[in-house]
Amino acid sequence: MDFDFSDDQAQLRDAVRKWVDRGYGFERRRAIVAAGGFARAAWNELAALGLMALTLPEAHGGMGQGAIDAMVVAEELGRGIVLEPIAQAFIAGSVLSKHAPAAVQSAWLPRVASGEALLVLAQQERRARYRLDVCDTQASASGAGHALSGAKSLVAAGDLADAFIVAARLDGRIALFLVQRAAAGVSAQGYATQDGSRAAEVRFSDAPATLLTRDGLAALEQAVDTGIAAACAEAVGVMDRTLAITIEYLRQRQQFGVPIASFQALRHRVADMKMQLELARSMSYYASLKLDAPAAQRRAAMARAKVQLGQSMRFVGQQAVQLHGGIGVADEYIVSHYFKKLTQLEMVFGDTQHHLGELSGRMQETAGVFA
């Protein structure tokens, strides 16, 4: 099997890395955090690079690329701990292009591709605790369309989004709907999250909605799996940069007249960080490669990847802070922000314990060393 990236993917990586290095420095990021955690200007710059259109169908203004291209982008944006939720563009593109009626695709996909419209997934509810089959939001027929009532939590940039992809129960089954933020009956309360990005609590009160698919649970699982693959790739980028910053610090910091990078015990800890990073990288590749697999295989693959990524993120983040000492948790120092990002990513779309449960629940009688 060939694991080398194509020339186009290498060029894509280089373009995104250059934008991060030149256009999204630490000071700009701090300014965006202070301003609320999301900048339309930065979002538009990402769109100008073609990143919103990357995985969308060419018929709707997209570039028709695949999961590996999206992985490359997410990894590079992770290196810069970019706040703008690129994963939501990948999720929206996947849901709309695979499940939405043709009229909805024509109306929204070109706007997503250009960056004009920010569509975000609204599926998390307080009672669900990461379970996708737990949904209290209700949908009912209303004239020629539908109306939604309920509440969603931790909606990425929810008070600034143009529309939501919402999971709601229709006739006892989960379905997916598109709801515009400006619609009557929609309210959103935004706030900053742990890593400085933006989320919102969104409420619907008989809000007009457009039905995307009645097979909502399957579509929702696919959407979340797209998000998991993107989160895994982003985490690899975050850990890669965290390790580089830590190594640079160890080379500069001196004790007893020599750089502490020369201390064998610290070198061993750095080697362990590198090992965890590479384990995470391989499972991130695995997750992206499995996005087009049958649903059962795809779901199991995402759970495996998220377990390994969760373990790696926790280890790399904690070791980075420990090796820096007190400065590692200072808000003025960049590594503390990488640590916060890793802490948050570990919980995105299900934490490590949740996905361990997913894996154990999917084990067959033949699972184990004696199979």
Rank of each mutant, 00 (worst) to 15 (best):
A182H: 12
A184H: 13
M275Y: 11
A157K: 03
G227R: 11
G93P: 06
A301N: 09
A144Y: 03
L83T: 01
C135E: 02
Q308P: 00
R181F: 07
R129L: 09
Q353I: 05
V270W: 11
R29E: 03
E27N: 12
R269D: 10
A70M: 08
L178K: 10
R173D: 14
S262L: 15
Q105D: 01
E248L: 03
R79V: 03
V20P: 08
Q353G: 04
K18C: 06
G326R: 10
H268N: 08
R314W: 13
Q311S: 12
V33K: 14
A200P: 05
G66P: 04
T193C: 11
E358N: 07
A235N: 05
A280F: 14
I86A: 08
D272N: 09
E234V: 00
D136W: 08
M347Q: 13
A218Q: 15
Q194C: 02
A144C: 04
A74V: 00
G326N: 14
E248A: 15
A41M: 05
Q252S: 12
C232K: 03
S197G: 09
T352K: 15
A31M: 06
G93N: 10
A287C: 08
V369T: 06
A301K: 07
V155A: 03
A141S: 10
Q123V: 01
S106K: 14
A147L: 09
A229G: 13
A156Y: 09
A122R: 10
I91H: 05
R29F: 09
A92E: 00
V104Q: 13
G328E: 06
G158E: 02
Q364G: 14
Q138K: 15
A70H: 08
Q124F: 01
T352E: 15
V120F: 07
E278Y: 11
E346V: 06
M63R: 15
A35C: 06
A31Y: 05
V166I: 10
Q364P: 00
A163R: 12
D171K: 12
V321W: 04
P110R: 12
F315I: 00
E221W: 11
K152R: 14
S284F: 05
A371N: 09
L119E: 00
L12G: 09
E221N: 15
W19E: 00
S312E: 01
E45H: 10
G37P: 08
A175F: 11
Y249N: 03
R203H: 14
D292A: 14
W19L: 02
R79W: 06
G25W: 11
A67V: 01
A122H: 07
A192C: 03
E248Q: 14
A100I: 02
A301G: 13
G115E: 02
F339D: 05
A107T: 04
L345I: 03
